[in-house]
Design a protein around this nucleic acid. Structure first.
Length: 349
DNA sequence: AAAGCGGGGCG
DNA sequence: CGCCCAGCTTT
């Protein structure tokens, strides 16, 4: 039997039940696809449910304040997805009357929608015969066909896209695309797949050549940078100071406490010399305590953040200018913050 | 073509 | 501790 037919039969028997598999509504499919980019189903599922609950339609999402969208997204990471999600919702609601684009080419023009997501929506919602190539598909195809071209190179992307297109079941792209991805997630797993229980075992090149553990090939990994953050929790009995991250870099749009970043760990004495420190505290007297002696280490894919939280108790806050803003202590938890900050807030407040 | 962007789960 | 996850955008 043909590759695609086998996958579809396997899928109909083994697929997991998921809320976005109960519909072909483009808004729901689009939402699920954005949430699931570089994200496991188990991690994304609760976010999908809360977004659907808070924003049942694209109009609800479009009408929401950006902060509310970021707050709901808090903890999911890759926050540009949330900002692009919101921008696209506004575009679809305001410019397209709430109707999503209905082809691969037109979907590709939406912010936050790349080749994979456009293909997924076009095939699942509109039966367009376009192949999806996500992490699962790379793995299944490289093993099944024994292709060792590195998947994170221009050549690899091009080659696997072509292979995916050649193997696509053009009569039922919606089912086939979901089948190959589900097969990659459940059967042809990254680590220790059970090839003795595989419906493709008779034709799998990697299995035949004992190369399952070597495929797919992925080039190097970037070096991890270390950064040193000293946060200032400057507070009275009622208020503290937050700032919003803008510009480039991590956590765009999220909030944090006033930050002193240095190229190496610093002492309290050195911290006191920071301009932000004098700007926010002036000459007034204060009580300062280090929340925790050891650095809190927060790991991102490509950065390790060594973090200290300095709590500064003061009588009153100075007049603040952007980006700093006064926030009532009881309101701190309303702001969208990175997990690093959220964990501190939870433990400290 | 390469870098940047989160957080969590698993062996 | 390294790898990977229903990738996209910017440089």
């Amino acid at each position: 039997m043909k590759f695609g037919k086998k996958l579809i039969l396997w899928y109909l028997e083994n697929k997991r039940s998921m809320p976005w598999r109960e519909t072909r509504d483009p808004y729901s499919i689009w939402l699920s696809e954005i949430i699931l980019q570089q994200t496991r189903v188990a991690q994304g599922l609760p976010y999908y449910l809360s977004f659907k609950s808070a924003f049942p339609t694209v109009f609800d999402l479009a009408a929401a304040p950006e902060e509310k969208v970021l707050k709901l997204w808090q903890g999911l990471g890759y926050y540009s997805r949330a900002r692009n999600l919101h921008a696209t919702a506004k575009y679809v609601a305001d410019e397209l009357g709430g109707t999503f684009p209905d082809s691969y080419a037109s979907l590709l023009l939406l912010k936050g929608v790349g080749d994979y997501t456009a293909s997924a929506i076009a095939s699942i919602c509109y039966d367009e015969a376009v192949p999806v190539v996500d992490g699962n598909v790379y793995r299944v195809l490289s093993r099944y066909l024994g292709v060792a071209t590195p998947i994170n190179t221009t050549q690899g992307v091009k080659e696997f896209k072509q292979l995916a297109k050649a193997l696509l079941e053009v009569k039922e792209p919606a089912t086939y695309n979901q089948a190959i991805m589900e097969f990659g997630a459940l059967q042809c797993k990254p680590q220790s797949p059970d090839c003795t229980q595989c419906v493709l075992d008779s034709d799998c090149v990697a299995l035949k050549e004992k190369k399952v553990g070597e495929l797919p090939v992925k080039l190097k990994k970037q070096k991890i940078k270390k950064r040193y953050f000293s946060y200032l929790i400057i507070q009275t009995n009622e208020e503290t100071i937050l700032q919003q991250r803008t510009g480039k870099g991590i956590w765009q749009g999220l909030y944090e406490f006033p930050l002193v970043e240095t190229s190496a760990p610093i002492s309290y004495e050195e911290l006191k010399k920071a301009s932000v420190f004098t700007e926010l505290l002036g000459a007034q007297t204060y009580e300062l305590s280090l929340y925790k002696e050891e650095a809190v280490i927060h790991k991102l894919s490509h950065q390790h953040l060594y973090t200290w939280f300095y709590v500064v108790q003061v009588q009153c806050l100075p007049l603040l200018s952007a980006p700093h803003q006064k926030v009532r202590l009881s309101d701190v938890e309303r702001y969208p913050v990175p997990i690093l900050i959220g964990n501190f807030i939870e433990a400290f407040f």
